[in-house]
Amino acid sequence: MFHWLEKNPFFFSVAVFVVISFAGLIEIVPNFAEASRPLVGMKPRTVLQLAGKNVYVKDNCMSCHSQLIRPFKSETDRYGDYSLSGEYAYDRPFLWGSKRTGPDLHRIGNYRTTDWHENHMFNPSEIVPGSIMPAYKHQFTNLADIETAYAEAVTVKNVFNTPYADDLIGTRAGWDAYKPKVLAEAKAIADNMKNKDVKDAVANGEVPEIVAIIAYLNSLK
């Protein structure tokens, strides 16, 4: 049979395709509906937090930090309760990471504060002596793309029925009306920060990346 396949490339290819595709069908498909169900009462991230998530993705924090607490006592002692599938239901993409050059961040919001992150992102090795994490000073001057974050929220609301409030409307006018809410949230974060340039930017209606990413990190609980 195999020898016959080797002389008939079309059927050979079909055979290979069948053999390699059914593992995916059996392993992934049956659980699809189950694994995407959120925890009861869980809220999706705010637009500012989404913008922070996008900064997290842009600067690729997940190359060194995980967001997955495994069910071992040594991990729950260090990072808090083990992670549950439902907690990730609104995460697109998932950000579990695959390497812990730095610690896990899945519940960082429980035990770190806005000003800690501000000082730490500006100069990690001053706050944690011996740290090999680079400083992310550019996040204090780069502006977060809150408009794209808004577009993302609208998209997931419309396409995947993520439970956002009805005032998210996918038009320019909708965004203009919504923007003050994002700025108010940013101001609440900036109030707990000390960097003057950041505070000034927020007062002028701009959101530096650092404000957005702190909002996101604080939401990881």
Partner: peptide, 16 residues
């Protein structure tokens, strides 16, 4: 609870 220090407000360690 959270207390103010120079590095930051001391974070809560309730969960740990």
């Amino acid at each position: 609870h959270r207390r103010k220090g120079r590095i930051c407000k001391m974070p809560s360690f309730k969960t740990l």
